[in-house]
Amino acid sequence: MRRSSWRSWLPFIFLVTAILLLALHETQILLPVENALQTVFAPLQRGAARLVSGLGNIFETIGETRELRAEVEELRQRVDALTAENIRLREHEAAEVQLRSMLNFVATNPTWTFVGADVVGQSACLNSPCGEIVGYETNPYLRYIMINAGSADGVGLGMPVVTSGAVLVGRIAEVSTHTSKVQLLNDTASNVAVFLQQSRATGLVAGQADGSLRLGFVPHEETIAEGEIVLTSGLGGVLPRGLVVGQVSQVIRQDFALFQEAVVRPAADYQRVELVLIITHFQPFVEEETGTQE
């Protein structure tokens, strides 16, 4: 009887604990505990990601084999081998293109420092510490990815994360010892100061609930055109200047509004990002006294 009455309190205890956790999370008191739990779960998460990736490759190969078996049964085994090889080479080729692009980016910014990281379970080692892990956001209203570089690799809060050269993906939002969570540009809490390459108009790119990017706070008198490249302005010093955010796909002008807006097509498909670089050090942009850009 006593045990039964104690058990009946469990839902209430869990509810109060969850609310307490929410409150304590905001005060950052739980950070060491969260880091410890992350350390426990990160290998499991990495293993699951590898397993899923491996199973995906197996299913893909099986699908191709069935088609080939119907056509040329006697060549089945050879085709299997070639298909597997082909997949492997394609992945190598795609990785090489990305790595070359990142290498160029690193070479063109010799004063910055970087950390390489992998988002979907492939090794991405340049000369920087990197690894392999993937974590997708489990809350449908948020847009984060988990990468396998953490404070042990020199990653810190707010650091910019880029891919495919100078394409900005997001910023580091949470760091534990060996993993970090990246807040993608299209998260609703993400805001980035930008300028447009041709018109030089400035504004703020914010993530929208539907996953798109919206450029706002562009003065009404500025003339912006569809197709313009959107780059980070570097104002505030939290991001380097000149990272690619996207391209203007639609301009929204309303006569009565103080500012005009634009829909921005992201320069990268955030769901397909595999390799990223974290810029651990850069020279912040300093606006000249005249207000002109460098």
């Binding site: 999370h25 956001e137 489990t138």
Partner: peptide, 28 residues
């Protein structure tokens, strides 16, 4: 609800760890 809440607490905590949102949100 008693066993359900135990599952909710454990499952929610693990999902919260994988999420960039506030710890306890999915659990709640």
């Amino acid at each position: 609800p008693i066993e359900g809440s135990l599952w909710a607490f454990i499952g929610g905590m693990i999902l919260d760890l994988f999420s960039g949102g506030p710890l306890g949100g999915i659990t709640l």
